[in-house]
């Protein structure tokens, strides 16, 4: 298995975000709900899926920007908990994710006449991003080469080939798809797709993926 050569080499790509501010702001939870319902889908993507690219080990505790804002700026632990547990990968589209977020806020705000309002500089400032992909010049035709690339590429490549490709429509560039289609390793592909980037760092995801490959390589040698 480890010596199998892929018909199509895997080319690692990293990425960087160009962040765009939308001049749309929320100063309380009711406004947050209204704005979430109205902003472009790219902004919902930025504040949920994009969180994995921007945040590091010690800041991933909230899972998305909305939960972080509710906890840190508003001080509403209950709402923060409810928003933090939303796993963006559990939804088939960003619109479905948006609706779920609005529903949580609607339910949370039901019966609350007064909501805490913060000053402008502590408000939620909606953004979206444009991803610039960067070919890293690293490619793989075998599982051994794939492991070598996975271990050394910029961590943004983990985001591109797990989160971006999984959430978008470019599944052929996902790690899992390549392992399945080009190396005929459906079990390993499935394990890769189950590796959960939610509430952890990209480096930890990299570590988990490497150990999956190592296990597969060890089994092949037996």
């Amino acid at each position: 298995m480890s010596s199998r050569t892929a018909a199509r080499p895997f080319r690692f790509a990293g990425c960087i975000e160009v962040r765009q501010t939308l001049d749309v702001h929320a100063l309380d939870e009711r406004e947050l709900m209204q704005r979430i319902a109205a902003v472009p889908a790219g902004s919902i993507f930025f504040h949920t899926f994009g969180y994995f690219l921007r945040h590091r080990a010690f800041t991933t505790a909230y899972g998305n920007d909305f939960a972080r804002w509710a906890a840190v700026e508003i001080g509403d632990s209950a709402l923060a908990e409810r928003l933090a547990v939303v796993d963006p990968f559990a939804f088939s589209s960003v619109e479905e994710l948006r609706e779920h977020l609005v529903t949580i806020l609607q339910d949370h705000l039901r019966g609350r006449e007064v909501v805490r309002r913060v000053e402008f500089d502590r408000g939620f400032h909606f953004q979206q991003s444009h991803i610039v992909e960067v070919p890293l010049g690293v490619s793989a035709e075998t599982l051994v080469e794939f492991r070598a690339g996975l271990a050394t590429v910029d961590e943004s490549a983990i985001y591109v080939h797990t989160v971006e490709t999984r959430a978008g429509q470019r599944r052929t560039e996902a790690f899992g798809e390549w392992l399945r289609d080009s190396l005929a390793l459906p079990e390993l592909a499935e394990q890769f797709e189950r590796a959960d980037p939610y509430l952890t760092s990209l480096e930890r995801v990299r570590g988990r993926l490497l150990s999956l490959v190592d296990t597969a390589l060890a089994e092949a040698r037996r």
Partner: peptide, 13 residues
């Protein structure tokens, strides 16, 4: 984000 004034052009961070 939040440092901007009202503008009619795209604003980046």
């Amino acid at each position: 984000p939040g440092f901007e004034g009202r503008l009619g052009i795209p604003m980046y961070v």
